[in-house]
Design a protein around this nucleic acid. Structure first.
Lengths: 132, 132
DNA sequence: GTATTTGCAAATGATTTGCAGTGCT
DNA sequence: AGCACTGCAAATCATTTGCAAATAC
């Protein structure tokens, strides 16, 4: 993935720290601020938490990243992708993406209420395949 | 609703503050900690934020309350009810409950992944009936 | 060269903890 | 009576802000 281009398209200057953050997000799928900080410090030992927060927030503002708010735990962050649901395993803690046809879901909803859906935040907690 | 009984069933002592919190939750549907604090102070002018946090957390632990984590805003809290989805209007900010057959939803999911769903956190953001 | 970004330190905001006094059962 | 709860103050944790130096373009 071309992170430089991605940043430029969002009118953000390309800095090594930003490239590092994006690479790390891509590699890890879902990651908390703390974990991101620990991992990225291995590459940029002098990076500050303030820089991390500023960049993550800026990237959320331009929709490069998305915050995933999880029950009973800290938020994680992911690269913005096509809409999908999240499966959170209560046993091993793993968080997986689930591609769903959001039209189908919105349809289920439309039959009950006349609400125009713009964005979804769907988290299913339970037991994953391996833990069953 | 009999709040005393509810508390007793959860092995929590019945205090005026707790009864006040539960009554307020029931009256307001969904409420943030700050709003709850402001409102409950009218009844218990000396109640402290610490007490509020302790009680809300304790009630979440025994499943009397549920935290609703919302995108781009602070969490709200609600009385635990039968599972339902949430509709958040991006225009007027209103948060409504939507009764959904979770079996239907879980079915949609089961066809894609073998994940055993235990709990759902479903938030649909968009435009409500009035704002359309 | 100019504007933005970085990293530090300090400020702010949110939540939790410890403890003495009070209240519930 | 005994244990749990309350309210206060202090401690902790998370996030944001201001600013001087460094960097991107």
């Amino acid at each position: 993935m071309n992170y430089e281009l991605l940043l430029r398209e969002c009118n953000m200057k390309v800095t090594p720290q930003r490239l590092g953050i994006l690479a790390m997000m891509c590699e890890n799928g879902h990651i908390s601020i703390e974990d991101l900080y620990v991992k990225i410090k291995k590459q940029f030992s002098s990076i500050s938490l303030a820089t991390l927060y500023k960049n993550v927030n800026a990237m959320i503002d331009v929709s490069l990243l998305k915050e995933v708010k999880l029950p009973h735990m800290k938020s994680k962050y992911e690269l913005a992708k096509t809409p999908h649901a999240h499966l959170l395993c209560e046993s091993c803690g793993v968080l997986e993406d689930l591609e769903m046809d959001m039209n189908e879901v919105s349809h289920l909803l439309a039959s009950k209420s006349d609400f125009k859906v713009n964005e979804t935040n769907l988290i299913f907690s339970g037991t994953c395949h391996n833990c069953q």
